[in-house]
Protein backbone atom coordinates (compact mmCIF):
# COMPACT_ATOMS: atom_id res chain seq x y z
CA UNK A 1 0.00 0.00 0.00
CA UNK A 2 2.96 2.27 0.66
CA UNK A 3 3.98 1.82 -2.99
CA UNK A 4 0.47 2.83 -4.08
CA UNK A 5 0.76 5.82 -1.78
CA UNK A 6 4.03 6.77 -3.45
CA UNK A 7 2.37 6.83 -6.87
CA UNK A 8 2.80 3.22 -8.02
CA UNK A 9 -0.92 2.78 -8.62
CA UNK A 10 -0.43 -0.53 -10.47
CA UNK A 11 0.28 -2.16 -7.13
CA UNK A 12 -3.34 -1.65 -6.14
CA UNK A 13 -4.11 -4.51 -8.56
CA UNK A 14 -2.06 -6.86 -6.37
CA UNK A 15 -3.87 -5.71 -3.25
CA UNK A 16 -7.17 -6.23 -5.02
CA UNK A 17 -6.31 -9.79 -6.00
CA UNK A 18 -5.21 -10.55 -2.45
CA UNK A 19 -8.17 -9.08 -0.62
CA UNK A 20 -11.15 -9.03 -3.00
CA UNK A 21 -12.67 -12.27 -1.71
CA UNK A 22 -12.31 -11.27 1.93
CA UNK A 23 -13.96 -7.95 1.27
CA UNK A 24 -16.68 -9.45 -0.86
CA UNK A 25 -17.41 -12.02 1.85
CA UNK A 26 -17.43 -9.29 4.48
CA UNK A 27 -20.05 -7.27 2.61
CA UNK A 28 -22.03 -10.33 1.65
CA UNK A 29 -22.15 -11.61 5.20
CA UNK A 30 -23.27 -8.25 6.42
CA UNK A 31 -26.41 -8.91 4.44
CA UNK A 32 -25.70 -7.26 1.14
CA UNK A 33 -26.57 -9.08 -2.04
CA UNK A 34 -23.70 -10.13 -4.33
CA UNK A 35 -24.20 -7.24 -6.70
CA UNK A 36 -24.12 -4.64 -3.93
CA UNK A 37 -21.23 -6.47 -2.28
CA UNK A 38 -19.28 -6.21 -5.52
CA UNK A 39 -20.06 -2.52 -5.79
CA UNK A 40 -18.94 -2.02 -2.23
CA UNK A 41 -15.66 -3.85 -2.90
CA UNK A 42 -15.12 -1.51 -5.82
CA UNK A 43 -15.99 1.40 -3.58
CA UNK A 44 -13.39 0.37 -0.98
CA UNK A 45 -10.63 0.25 -3.60
CA UNK A 46 -11.69 3.60 -4.97
CA UNK A 47 -11.46 5.00 -1.46
CA UNK A 48 -8.03 3.44 -1.07
CA UNK A 49 -6.92 5.35 -4.15
CA UNK A 50 -8.58 8.53 -3.05
CA UNK A 51 -7.29 8.44 0.51
CA UNK A 52 -3.99 6.68 -0.17
CA UNK A 53 -2.09 9.55 1.43
CA UNK A 54 -3.81 8.87 4.73
CA UNK A 55 -2.17 5.43 4.93
CA UNK A 56 0.73 5.81 7.33
CA UNK A 57 2.05 2.25 7.17
CA UNK A 58 1.60 1.92 10.91
CA UNK A 59 -0.57 -0.95 12.07
CA UNK A 60 -1.92 -3.77 9.96
CA UNK A 61 -3.06 -3.04 6.44
CA UNK A 62 -6.08 -5.31 7.03
CA UNK A 63 -7.26 -3.12 9.90
CA UNK A 64 -7.00 -0.02 7.71
CA UNK A 65 -8.80 -1.75 4.85
CA UNK A 66 -11.66 -3.08 6.96
CA UNK A 67 -12.08 0.26 8.66
CA UNK A 68 -12.58 1.69 5.19
CA UNK A 69 -14.92 -1.19 4.30
CA UNK A 70 -17.04 -0.51 7.38
CA UNK A 71 -17.33 3.12 6.39
CA UNK A 72 -18.26 2.20 2.82
CA UNK A 73 -20.98 -0.13 4.09
CA UNK A 74 -22.22 2.45 6.56
CA UNK A 75 -22.33 5.20 3.92
CA UNK A 76 -24.09 2.94 1.44
CA UNK A 77 -26.88 2.01 3.83
CA UNK A 78 -27.24 5.54 5.05
CA UNK A 79 -27.70 6.63 1.45
CA UNK A 80 -30.22 3.90 0.63
CA UNK A 81 -32.19 4.78 3.74
CA UNK A 82 -32.24 8.41 2.70
CA UNK A 83 -33.29 7.63 -0.87
CA UNK A 84 -35.85 5.11 0.33
CA UNK A 85 -34.41 2.34 -1.79
CA UNK A 86 -34.89 -0.99 -0.14
CA UNK A 87 -31.70 -2.93 0.00
CA UNK A 88 -31.82 -6.30 -1.46
CA UNK A 89 -30.25 -8.68 0.97
CA UNK A 90 -28.37 -11.84 0.37
CA UNK A 91 -31.59 -13.59 1.26
CA UNK A 92 -32.23 -13.82 -2.44
CA UNK A 93 -29.26 -16.09 -2.67
CA UNK A 94 -30.94 -18.71 -0.55
CA UNK A 95 -31.55 -21.38 -3.05
CA UNK A 96 -34.24 -23.96 -2.87
CA UNK A 97 -32.87 -27.42 -2.19
CA UNK A 98 -32.42 -29.39 -5.32
CA UNK A 99 -33.87 -32.83 -5.10
CA UNK A 100 -30.81 -34.85 -5.99
CA UNK A 101 -28.54 -32.96 -3.60
CA UNK A 102 -27.16 -34.84 -0.65
CA UNK A 103 -29.06 -34.36 2.59
CA UNK A 104 -25.92 -33.24 4.36
CA UNK A 105 -25.36 -30.50 1.90
CA UNK A 106 -28.98 -29.46 2.14
CA UNK A 107 -28.72 -29.30 5.90
CA UNK A 108 -25.56 -27.25 5.68
CA UNK A 109 -27.20 -24.87 3.28
CA UNK A 110 -30.21 -24.62 5.54
CA UNK A 111 -27.99 -23.85 8.49
CA UNK A 112 -26.16 -21.30 6.45
CA UNK A 113 -29.43 -19.64 5.41
CA UNK A 114 -30.61 -19.66 8.99
CA UNK A 115 -27.36 -18.24 10.15
CA UNK A 116 -27.61 -15.46 7.58
CA UNK A 117 -31.09 -14.70 8.88
CA UNK A 118 -29.85 -14.74 12.47
CA UNK A 119 -27.03 -12.42 11.52
CA UNK A 120 -29.47 -10.06 9.89
CA UNK A 121 -31.48 -9.95 13.07
CA UNK A 122 -28.42 -9.05 15.10
CA UNK A 123 -27.80 -5.35 15.69
CA UNK A 124 -25.57 -4.01 12.92
CA UNK A 125 -22.52 -3.38 15.09
CA UNK A 126 -22.57 -6.87 16.56
CA UNK A 127 -23.04 -8.48 13.17
CA UNK A 128 -20.07 -6.56 11.87
CA UNK A 129 -17.97 -7.67 14.83
CA UNK A 130 -18.74 -11.32 14.30
CA UNK A 131 -18.10 -11.19 10.58
CA UNK A 132 -14.80 -9.44 11.11
CA UNK A 133 -13.71 -11.66 13.99
CA UNK A 134 -14.62 -15.02 12.60
CA UNK A 135 -15.08 -14.87 8.90
CA UNK A 136 -12.24 -12.54 8.13
CA UNK A 137 -9.92 -14.04 10.72
CA UNK A 138 -8.67 -10.75 12.02
CA UNK A 139 -6.67 -10.73 15.23
CA UNK A 140 -8.32 -9.16 18.25
CA UNK A 141 -5.68 -6.44 18.29
CA UNK A 142 -6.63 -5.50 14.70
CA UNK A 143 -10.31 -5.75 15.50
CA UNK A 144 -9.81 -3.45 18.47
CA UNK A 145 -8.05 -1.01 16.15
CA UNK A 146 -10.96 -1.05 13.69
CA UNK A 147 -13.72 -0.56 16.21
CA UNK A 148 -11.68 1.71 18.42
CA UNK A 149 -11.53 -0.09 21.77
CA UNK A 150 -9.12 -2.13 23.85
CA UNK A 151 -8.25 -5.70 22.93
CA UNK A 152 -9.95 -7.02 26.06
CA UNK A 153 -13.10 -5.05 25.31
CA UNK A 154 -13.09 -6.42 21.75
CA UNK A 155 -12.97 -10.00 23.10
CA UNK A 156 -15.83 -9.33 25.50
CA UNK A 157 -17.91 -7.70 22.76
CA UNK A 158 -17.35 -10.57 20.32
CA UNK A 159 -18.23 -13.08 23.05
CA UNK A 160 -21.51 -11.32 23.83
CA UNK A 161 -22.39 -10.90 20.15
CA UNK A 162 -21.78 -14.60 19.63
CA UNK A 163 -24.08 -15.45 22.53
CA UNK A 164 -26.79 -13.23 21.15
CA UNK A 165 -26.41 -14.78 17.72
CA UNK A 166 -26.87 -18.24 19.20
CA UNK A 167 -30.09 -17.20 20.92
CA UNK A 168 -31.49 -15.74 17.69
CA UNK A 169 -30.36 -18.78 15.72
CA UNK A 170 -32.08 -21.16 18.13
CA UNK A 171 -35.25 -19.09 18.02
CA UNK A 172 -35.28 -19.24 14.22
CA UNK A 173 -34.57 -22.95 14.30
CA UNK A 174 -37.54 -23.62 16.55
CA UNK A 175 -39.56 -21.64 14.12
Amino acid sequence: MLKVKNGDLDKLGLLYERHKKKLFGFFYNLGNNPSISEDLVQNVFMRMLQYRNSYSGEGAFGAWMFKMARNANYDFHKKTLQTGVLRSTSEIQIKDPIEDRLNEEIEREDNNALLQKALEKLPKGKRELLVLAKYKGLKFSELAQIIGCSEGAAKVRVHRALKELRIIFLELEIG
Binding site: Y28, N29, P34, N112, K134, R166
Partner: peptide, 16 residues
Amino acid sequence: LKRSWTLLGQLDAPQP
Protein backbone atom coordinates in the same frame (compact mmCIF):
# COMPACT_ATOMS: atom_id res chain seq x y z
CA LEU B 1 -20.27 -20.79 22.47
CA LYS B 2 -18.01 -23.17 20.61
CA ARG B 3 -20.94 -24.53 18.61
CA SER B 4 -21.93 -21.02 17.61
CA TRP B 5 -18.35 -20.22 16.69
CA THR B 6 -18.11 -23.36 14.56
CA LEU B 7 -21.41 -22.55 12.96
CA LEU B 8 -20.20 -19.08 12.20
CA GLY B 9 -17.18 -20.65 10.57
CA GLN B 10 -19.43 -22.41 8.13
CA LEU B 11 -20.67 -19.11 6.96
CA ASP B 12 -19.62 -18.75 3.41
CA ALA B 13 -20.12 -16.44 0.54
CA PRO B 14 -20.40 -16.98 -3.18
CA GLN B 15 -17.49 -16.16 -5.41
CA PRO B 16 -17.47 -12.64 -6.73
